[in-house]
Design a binder for these strands. Structure first.
Lengths: 112, 112
DNA sequence: ATTCGTTATATTTGATAAGTCATAACGCTT
DNA sequence: AAGCGTTATGACTTATCAAATATAACGAAT
């Protein structure tokens, strides 16, 4: 059969999204590049889009997820806080577990 | 903590969506009402939107998911095929299992 | 002082999705 | 024959979201 099961998970706080796959992807790109603008470029996303995503995350999370600096050597930059790194890691672990779980589910169903 | 984990699952065929939560919801409403127009009204959805969703499902699925009749007693109607009912049931079972699984996952994480 | 690359933000434009209207075909009921 | 409620479409309008553009602030380096 051609049927494939897919999933997306996200974390909400107060009924608003805090973290989803896209935001996690962006946070990881920030960690790699040390810059929000470079991370946006890496993902083919406009800077504004990237900035508003990160802004939303920081406003919803109980503690800041990124730190930024303006000006200076290299013009500035952005990086993840320890809390941000732990959020990303937790999310990715649960997400991968979810995929494996669903794979097993579809194998036991009539669809496969 | 206020963090809640949420998920959506869907079934794809050839890279296009076949069935998701919204479509399943609509199929169940058709099963209840025996009519596409009544199902759309029940869900606060335009008839056209409902029709194009069902049309897409029937075009992607390997077998028809609904049967319809035009004219006659009551003007016509729509109902699920046996295959459609089995698709809905399989989807809902996997979906509920996924929720339970994620609840367990979040309880074992640092977030809870 | 000027340049540079970045963060931060508002404004405008464009693209895409969704919603609204209108209309035809159909077959039972009256 | 006429009416009714439904399925089935197309045309048009509206709303929503993403993208592009412009601008300011900042601090180190030159």
């Amino acid at each position: 059969m051609n049927y494939k099961i897919k999933s997306r998970i996200w974390i909400e706080v107060d009924g608003h999204i805090l973290l989803g796959e896209g935001r996690v992807h962006l946070l990881k790109a920030i960690e790699e590049t040390g810059s929000l603008s470079k991370a946006a470029k890496l993902l083919g996303m406009s800077y504004k889009k990237a900035w508003s995503l990160i802004d939303a995350v920081n406003k919803r999370a109980e503690k800041p997820v990124t730190t930024t600096s303006i000006g200076g050597k290299g013009g500035g930059g952005a990086s993840l806080t320890a809390y941000g790194k732990s959020l990303v890691e937790t999310f990715e672990t649960i997400n991968e577990n979810c995929w494996k779980f669903l794979d097993a589910q579809i194998k036991n169903s009539k669809l496969k």
